[in-house]
Simulated scan of single mutants.
Amino acid sequence: MTTRTLDLIIIGGGPSGLTAGIYAQRAALQTVLVEKGLPGGQLNNTDIVENWPGTESISGADLAAAMTNHAKACGLEILAREVVEVEPGLDEHIVRLDNGDELYAPAVILACGGQPRRLGIPGELENYGKGVSYCAVCDGFFFRNKRVVVIGGGDTALEDALFLSKIASSVHLVHRRDAFRGGMILQKRVLAEPKIQVVWDSVVTDLHADGSGVHAVGIRNVKTGAEQVLPTDGVFIFIGYESDNRLVPAGMKMNAKGFVITDERCETNISGIFVVGDLREKFIKQIVTAAAEGCIATQAVAHLVEEKKGKAASCEV
């Protein structure tokens, strides 16, 4: 086991974590970003991004790569490991890694993001990877010229329905309401796409599968109660994300949905621990807001670290 002492530890390499890393380097903070997967987070699973300021259209993977390269060019160290525990302390917090190593720092930024919300219907977990997917960009290729069902009504569901319409033979978009929640531009594109058929006011109740995987879904109209079985080769579920709060220390304040409550500086009720991105309670979750929070939190960290170093220096005199 090895130990290291730093100014700042960032956990998570999505847009908020990478932005925090860039600003940490600009503030000359000794920093390590720990990311167990591919830097960029959910961006890597996004087909096209059209609301990143200054860039009319860019693939999510390309934007993720650009952010990662920018952070590395600034000198940020990205450690490809998994964090297993965050232990708060009075002057320093401890971040334990899966290989037994420990990182110490007066400031930690949690940028853990979220994970796809599941429907919780029969057959969902059993058929994950056998017709059930939560990522159209990852798995759409396997459904070329096949029938697919998309579940959801937000931006991600609309974006991925459009993406799949370029690959699949047909797309049924099932939404529990009579109006979408996604942006108007996406709504217009979906309704204008002849390959997409919207199933309004309906929910998927169960998945029908055999040894080869999913072959149909059960659907119920929430207003009339009418039920039908819709043949399909694949089901793509996009009903939002849940906070990935597994590393949140005991005593940290969260709301009823499991998102962490912070102040305007993104600091939690535990001094020196900040939360940014999709793990944080806020009005809207977008790439631009995540990046902004990474900047805000790191600026707050810089002040915190400077203050602690100043106090330590005065004690030595």
Rank of each mutant, 00 (worst) to 15 (best):
N221V: 00
E126C: 06
E77C: 00
I9S: 01
T298L: 11
V149R: 00
N99P: 04
F236Y: 00
C135F: 13
E92D: 14
I239C: 07
I287C: 11
C138Q: 09
I287T: 13
S170H: 09
S165R: 03
V222S: 05
F236N: 11
A64K: 05
K188L: 04
K308N: 03
K308E: 04
H175P: 10
G13Q: 09
C295L: 12
L8Q: 02
Q299D: 12
N145M: 02
A161Q: 07
R176C: 13
D155F: 02
L76P: 02
E267M: 07
A290C: 03
Q197R: 10
Q115E: 04
V148A: 07
R81V: 01
K309N: 13
G218A: 10
L8W: 01
I58K: 03
V317T: 14
E124C: 02
E281I: 05
E159A: 04
L207G: 07
Q25S: 09
D160M: 00
F259H: 11
R220N: 01
E77K: 13
I270N: 09
E227S: 13
Q286C: 06
K308Q: 15
A292S: 15
K166D: 14
V305P: 00
I270A: 05
K253C: 12
G152Q: 07
D7E: 00
G120K: 11
R147Q: 08
E159D: 15
A71Q: 06
Q228L: 08
R147A: 14
G240H: 06
E267G: 04
G123M: 03
V199G: 11
V84N: 14
D62V: 08
A71W: 15
P53M: 05
G153E: 01
G12V: 11
N221K: 05
R220H: 09
P194I: 05
R118E: 09
D244N: 14
V248Q: 04
A302W: 07
L29M: 11
S271R: 11
V214Q: 07
W200Q: 01
V260E: 02
T3Q: 14
K253P: 04
K285L: 09
H303D: 12
G54H: 01
S243P: 10
T156E: 10
